[in-house]
Design a protein around this nucleic acid. Sequence first.
DNA 1: ATCTGGATTTAGAATTAGTCTAAATTCGTT
DNA 2: AACGAATTTAGACTAATTCTAAATCCAGAT
Lengths: 145, 145
Amino acid sequence: MRRLTQQDLDQLARSRGLNLTPQRRAIVDFLHSASNHPSAEEVFAEVNRRFPMTSRATVYNTLNLLKAAGLLHEVFEDGVSRFDPVLDPHHHFVCRACGKVEDVDREIMPAPAGRKLLPGKQRVETYEVTFRGLCAACGGRAEQQ
Amino acid sequence: MRRLTQQDLDQLARSRGLNLTPQRRAIVDFLHSASNHPSAEEVFAEVNRRFPMTSRATVYNTLNLLKAAGLLHEVFEDGVSRFDPVLDPHHHFVCRACGKVEDVDREIMPAPAGRKLLPGKQRVETYEVTFRGLCAACGGRAEQQ
DNA sequence: ATCTGGATTTAGAATTAGTCTAAATTCGTT
DNA sequence: AACGAATTTAGACTAATTCTAAATCCAGAT
Ligand SMILES: [Mn+2]
Ligand SMILES: [Mn+2]
Ligand SMILES: [Zn+2]
Ligand SMILES: [Zn+2]
């Protein structure tokens, strides 16, 4: 799954008139280093480790900015908002034991061929699948119920 | 898509030791009459119309109770929590113009035959699809962008 | 090198959805 | 009618997010 490089990012940001300040860069860096869909609070905590005194407002502002610029997606799983630096359309798996949110390749469940209109006459532009169950780690432990 | 009758409901509730008080019945009635996935606040407003002085706490308590008893499902769309009286597994369509959440039959996108394990070794127990685009009403109006 | 205006950041107040609490009420059983 | 358990209520509390107004930063103009 494609991830943006620093270059991509600089270029994209610039092309959209986005000023990449140190705080903003720290936020993007963390999101790309973190493998799994951090929440706003996790971003706040981590960015503050490297860059103390970064305010919540800046974290939220930046996440919203990047999202609006299309450099970041927001995913909601079970009422929790998380941020996803992977831009290609893909699906998610949520572990019911540990709560981890993992990426799933879109090929696993491709669009039903040529169906742009649902029976209810809705025009589908995108779709995403959420799989639920036990992740590799949790499923491994002793065939738990 | 199957919906519970009053009888089903009484029986189910009783069999699970759930006392169906007037407030609780009003909440369930409303959820079943409303066609589209009301939020807690919408339930609160409507139940109060018929049954003034019903507190938020009772609405939330009841929704959580019914959910725990399996008589109701909670669906999160775009960070908003909504309640769904349709118990069979099914998918959803979210209109990007008006925000309406509509049911979609599961047949539209059935499980990939025999796949219980994803490539990442996750064991899939359930899955759900969210389609996004324009609903019949919004899509009809003048081929908007 | 200094000035200046716009963009950015900051701390904290405000808002919102939801949970918790403790007292009052209801209801089935004696 | 009296009792105790379950339920309901109003409002306090909490957590996530947005808003606000003042401070800071910074690029371009002088
Ligand atoms: Mn993802
Ligand atoms: Mn539904
Ligand atoms: Zn797990
Ligand atoms: Zn619509």
